[in-house]
């Protein structure tokens, strides 16, 4: 009890006083999660749209795999990427292990299936008449396709937001690929996991508050986007 109340007052001091250690940790989390999510959006949205639009053999299998990968354990991704980025690994010569870039790569792999699978679901959930209606009003195939994308816009943004929510809160990849290096790869989750051991309970709580707040915002945003989808 005593520990919690002391921790809480310390956490508030950190939050309100913009403690440099604290802000550095939050900045790393935001920067890395934002970059990896942007990368996922750039790659997974087109892939999702393609899968939704095209009919090809094994398509159902691809969608099933994407859906399974949505719940891919972060430590498994961490392990796989670790084995490739280590100096012993396939891409070892790049020297990327224990860098922010490594974290971005790992988180990108985590976010990709979520964004892609949710994009597929959104596109398939669209009214089947959208395309033919656009054509009937004089749209070229490209314009009709853009119309489809535009109809799916809230769903696609929701997919990206869900991806962000996952990578922001994950710890396995950040820990294994980033190494929890102070001011460099120490993110909110790795700091909570490791720094509380050092008796930095207030810091852990303050970071936990940030994490909860972001999770709350992400969920509010998702709810709003859902309301705007037909």
């Amino acid at each position: 009890m005593d520990m919690l109340s002391e921790g809480l007052s310390g956490a508030l001091r950190l939050l309100l006083g913009f403690d440099p250690d604290f802000t550095a940790i939050v900045a790393v989390s935001v920067l890395v999660a934002f970059t990896s999510t942007s990368l996922a959006a750039l790659t997974a949205v087109p892939v999702g749209v393609l899968i939704a639009q095209r009919r090809f053999p094994g398509r159902g299998g691809v969608i099933a795999v994407l859906n399974t990968l949505m719940s891919l354990p972060t430590v498994v991704v961490g392990l796989l990427v670790y084995s490739m980025l280590s100096r012993n690994g396939l891409f070892g010569s790049l020297g990327l292990l224990y860098t922010r870039t490594a974290m971005v790569i790992g988180q990108w792999i985590l976010a990709f299936p979520i964004v892609a699978a949710l994009t597929v679901a959104t596109m398939e959930g669209l009214d089947t008449r959208v395309h033919s209606t656009a054509i009937s009003l004089g749209a070229s195939p490209m314009q009709a396709f853009l119309r489809l994308l535009s109809e799916a816009r809230f769903g696609i943004v929701a997919a990206v937001v869900a991806g962000f929510g996952r990578v922001f809160a994950e710890v396995g990849v950040s820990m294994m690929l980033g190494g929890n290096i102070k001011t460099y790869t120490r993110s909110i989750t790795t700091a909570i996991a490791l720094e509380t051991n050092r008796g930095e309970f207030a810091l852990g709580l303050a970071l936990g508050i940030v994490l909860l707040t972001v999770a709350l915002l992400v969920n509010i945003l998702l709810a709003l986007l859902k309301r705007r989808t037909p």
Binding site: L31, F34, T35, T37, S38, L42, T99, R100
Partner: peptide, 15 residues
């Protein structure tokens, strides 16, 4: 997208 790319460049440049 642009913000994302800029962020990525920053991460890389910093690295």
């Amino acid at each position: 997208v642009m913000i994302g790319l800029i962020a990525l460049c920053t991460v890389h440049a910093a690295d």
